[in-house]
Amino acid sequence: MIKVENLKKSFGENDVLKNINAIVSPREVVVVIGPSGSGKSTFLRCINQLETITGGHIFIEGLDTTDKKVNINKVRTEVGMVFQHFNLFPHKTVLENIMLAPIKVRKISKEQASQRGMELLKKVGLAEKANAYPDSLSGGQKQRVAIARALAMEPKIMLFDEPTSALDPEMVGEVLEVMKQLAKEGMTMVVVTHEMGFAKEVGDRVIFMDEGYIIEENIPSEIFNNPQQERTKAFLSKVL
């Protein structure tokens, strides 16, 4: 579903991603872990090209999205993203946040968008907040709205960039619940997170990154119980 080939990304002199090769299969949940500065968020942001990549190729469903002729906006409609800081639109209500892109990009009618929006809000347990503004919501609620907003485009892939890192501890659970539900429904997901519990429980595969390389990848039980690389061991001993 996603194939990353020799991906490189530099910010000026600073090489953040050195040579990344990865494959994500349909319905798979891949969890990316690693110390801060390892390049895991940049890796995720390269998949939908919020970062302009320096070298390599990214194929999504066989299409080389790094080809200049490919309309990246079209690609992004199929790849939803959830951010650490939610990035909800503060001047729009919760429902308007969800309706905007389907109306403007998918060109569906307002009625249809609103109906679909309400269904998604029910799914994330926030139907009663439809007409509230984002600033009146808690962090956990904001993130659930952000997930609903991304789902409204009916993407085939969802990217999660540290979705619980900016939340108070008691709100982490409600967001992870929604993500688990999504995984169960068969959504293809790439999740950058520090929640090792989530990685173990929901992840089909775990990728460990450090200093711009993928150091090790395996099924969660192997990574957590039987890491092969020294750097993986050192990292896990600090976070577990």
Binding site: F83, L100, K104, V105, M153
Partner: peptide, 19 residues
Amino acid sequence: GQMEGARSLGMTHAQTMIH
């Protein structure tokens, strides 16, 4: 993040600016 949030949904630069 506002620009990124909107662009990640497939909106164009111009649409994001306007809306």
